[in-house]
Simulated assay, not measured.
Amino acid sequence: MEKINIAGPYNFDLVLDRLSLDPLHALDKEKRVVKVPITVGEASIVATVRATGTTNEPQFIIDGIDMVDKEQAVNKLTHIFQWNNPLEEVHSHFEQTDLKDISNQHRGTPLVLDFHPYNCLMKCIVHQQLNLSFAHTLTERFVKTFGSQVDGVYFYPTPEKVATLTVEDLRALQFSGRKAEYVIGIAKEVVEGRLDIEGLYTKSDEEVLNELIKIRGVGPWTVQNFLMFGLGRPNLFPLADIGLQNALKKLYNLENKPTKEQMLQYTKDWEPYLSYASLYLWRSIE
Rank of each mutant, 00 (worst) to 15 (best):
F175K: 02
V34K: 07
W221M: 10
L248R: 00
E207Y: 02
Q105I: 08
Q128C: 07
S92A: 11
H93E: 11
L14S: 10
V150G: 07
E198A: 13
N5H: 12
K144C: 05
K76F: 04
Y182A: 00
Q129I: 08
Y266G: 07
V36H: 05
V143N: 02
Y280K: 13
M122F: 09
S176K: 00
K188C: 02
L87D: 03
I242S: 08
F60N: 07
L173A: 02
Q224T: 06
L121S: 01
F142D: 03
F146D: 04
E168H: 04
V218W: 09
N235P: 13
P238M: 04
N210E: 15
E88F: 10
K29E: 12
R32T: 04
S44F: 05
R194S: 12
F94S: 09
Y273N: 04
H106M: 11
V36L: 10
D13W: 02
N56F: 10
S278I: 13
E95Q: 15
G41Y: 06
K35G: 03
N131R: 05
V183P: 04
C120V: 09
E261T: 08
Y273F: 14
K179V: 02
Q224P: 10
E168S: 10
L254T: 01
L239I: 14
L24P: 05
T55I: 14
T137Q: 05
D196Y: 05
E207L: 01
F226Y: 15
T54S: 14
Q262T: 04
K161T: 11
L132D: 02
H25G: 11
E89A: 15
K35W: 03
V183R: 02
L27N: 06
T145S: 15
M263L: 05
L251S: 09
